[in-house]
Design a protein around this nucleic acid. Structure first.
Lengths: 140, 140
DNA sequence: CTTTATATGTAACATTGTTTCAATAATTTG
DNA sequence: CAAATTATTGAAACAATGTTACATATAAAG
């Protein structure tokens, strides 16, 4: 799907920086960090623009942020089929060695039981370990 | 258990700042942020000391850090019975309204299936929503 | 009590993210 | 297609969280 159409479909104004942001994520297939995204955009836009776009596009359901830990954040496009706002219904994997992050779209997040009176709004699951390409993993 | 004994049991040097840190967490019953902990310690120690102690005590299995999101981190003592290094085998709940964080010790983290060749080292589960004391929750 | 090893404070820095306000670009309207 | 309106962007400054290097202070061992 073209960046233009994604923006139109979610009722978000088409601007060059947003189109570039979406393109960067589409090119990669994997969630990217701020630096990786802005590198792909050739640093043509300010950091503050990046953050504002992330917020806008995330609120409109175009992408989601993946918090690996307090110092590592990644961003990924939501699947186009799903229309949910908080589309983080799947598990994320983070490789401690190479830093690669993977959306495990096939692995749904479990429904955990909460104590009486608690209301769930979202559930973030991040699995950390070694990916199949890193020593210690499968192909070590 | 007394801070002194906890430190001895984990083979960590007893210093005033570490004892104060553990006391602060013991007093609270709930995971605390850096500011909350340092407030309880009356800002008697430098931020850098706090961070170094968090690292040391976390590596020795005395406490664990809970990453709520990229800007909110909490710290909690590990259960004394469990001797594991990465003692985060339970789910964490974070109230979006009041910011309170709760270790759901009774709720174990599910074993999620990983693709061939991936190795799990840890799995962080953070549930966000409203706690029972906040409007919108049970007692609203 | 002295020695040795470790912990601490100071200062400086790095990264991530936000706020304010003026300038600019994208829609809407004529 | 041009003018007006509205939303987006950039610049500068700031805030929060976390780290590094080195000199000083404190704990544990002898």
């Amino acid at each position: 799907m073209k960046p233009n159409d994604i923006l139109a479909q979610h009722d978000v104004k088409k601007t060059l920086s947003r189109i570039a942001l979406i393109k960067a994520l589409q090119t990669s297939e994997q969630p990217l960090s701020e630096n990786e995204i802005r590198e792909q955009m050739l640093d043509q836009y300010d950091r503050i623009t990046f953050y504002r776009n992330i917020q806008t596009l995330s609120e409109s359901g175009i992408l989601h942020r993946i918090v690996i830990d307090n110092t590592h954040v990644k961003y990924a496009l939501n699947c186009c089929e799903k229309e949910h706002h908080h589309a983080i219904d799947h598990v994320h994997f983070y490789c401690k060695k190479c830093g690669k992050t993977i959306c495990l779209d096939q692995v749904p997040v479990q429904q955990y039981p909460l104590p009486e009176g608690f209301r769930l709004e979202e559930c973030d699951v991040v699995i950390k370990g070694l990916c199949k390409d890193c020593p210690g993993g499968h192909n070590a």
